[in-house]
Design a protein around this nucleic acid. Sequence first.
DNA 1: CTATGGCACGGATT
DNA 2: AATCCGTGCCATAG
Length: 476
Amino acid sequence: MLNQSFRQSQEQSLRPLTTAHLAQTMSLLLLSRQELKQKVESEISTNPALEVVDMNKCPSCSRPLIGNTPCSVCRRNGDNVDDTPIIFISSRSDFVGSSSNSQSADDISPDEITPAREDLHSYVLRQAAPDLETQDIPIAAHILSSLDDDGLLSVPIVEIAQYHHVPISRIEKVNELIKRCEPVGVGSTSPLEALLVQTDVLSETNYVPPLASRAITEGMELLSRHSYTELGRLLSISTDDALEIARFISENLNPYPARSHWGNIRDGRASKQDYQSPDVIISILNHPKQNLVVEIISPYTGRLRINQLFRDAIREAPSENAEKWQADLEKASLLIKCLQQRNNTLVRLMHLLVEIQHDFILQGDIHLVPITRASLADKLNVHESTISRAVSGKMLQLPNKSLIPMSKLFDRSLRIRAEMINIILEEIKPLNDSQIADILNERGFSIARRTVAKYRAIEGILASRMRRSMHSSNPE
DNA sequence: CTATGGCACGGATT
DNA sequence: AATCCGTGCCATAG
């Protein structure tokens, strides 16, 4: 059912109606998630015709909702609230790119599409549900809907306890359970707590350096300052061991569960772009056949729609403001259409991309197939600039949790660079640039010697002379 | 003398 | 129209 409405909206939005529409769609497409969030928020606050319905709260009584089921308290009016929305923009919109051989966006068979639009809340709830007492489920739902963007609990536990009139310990019990769900650490009250939970859970299946949790509780300060010697002293271990712990933490843990992995930390510098959140998330669907799920992240949760009351008010009680209101109404509806189209374009684009770059996404740089924005534009029957805008500035999260700029999928030379790295890694005796160039040419990549040098520079690889026998430096 | 890095130019891409 | 990228030529470091 969602598929159908989705497809309908796709077709109907294919032809822009006005130039204004077109222009706005274009500009929206350019915006990344955060920018769009600002834009939408400002629009909402200035335009009374727009309203946002939080999907995680019951529309009428604003109690936390569980998944898609209507609020149990006021189910009767809960339902008819739903029949008037102009548009439904989910916080994520999902679909599946099949692994190999579905050719065009149009012939995906229905069962390959994940039917539910699932956001973090329901995702986690589904995991937790089997372990929960039935009467605890509302509590879990409440906790989940109180998460902030980072997946941390933004409301004091006491408050939740009061709301439900149950002892704090019970809330904590539920929360313990939630924290152990994927992404591990959700629902923690602080980044620190999230780290601890993750360490704990990880230690059940993997090797965790001893004292890691103590390092977190007691040495967080030192960790963030990268004073490993001091950390070592604090825990009375060697600096090397302290370093190992630090590396373990930065590689395996994430203080903000809902965010992606905090980037490649090279030499301890975790700052800069790392705290960006992705615009699109690609993950692997576990149980069925390893399909890739693409989720376009919307900057806000809930439905954005025309305020029905506002519309009625205009119709029934015309006043001297009617003109202005009418204009607002039109602006609102335009915005919604444009947002819809933005989303739609992204979805279509990602679908194609995931198909083409399937191997790259799963197996890394070497499998990137070189494509140009233009070629995609051709396949999607849109203008190149549309693709350009859609790609620029967007971040993508891969199944392995790494965050990459979307433009990486269009990197012409990445493929060859990866190959080059392999060559350099494999060789025992350092090769000079022209030798590398020769090997690459033999393998079918015709590039010049000078270019090898350039690539080396990009990858931060030293000149052949300088790299006698050093390793363990550049995983990227 | 050889291997590299710098500068700059032309073609492709956006 | 602006930008990016591969490449050639040349100066320089080793």
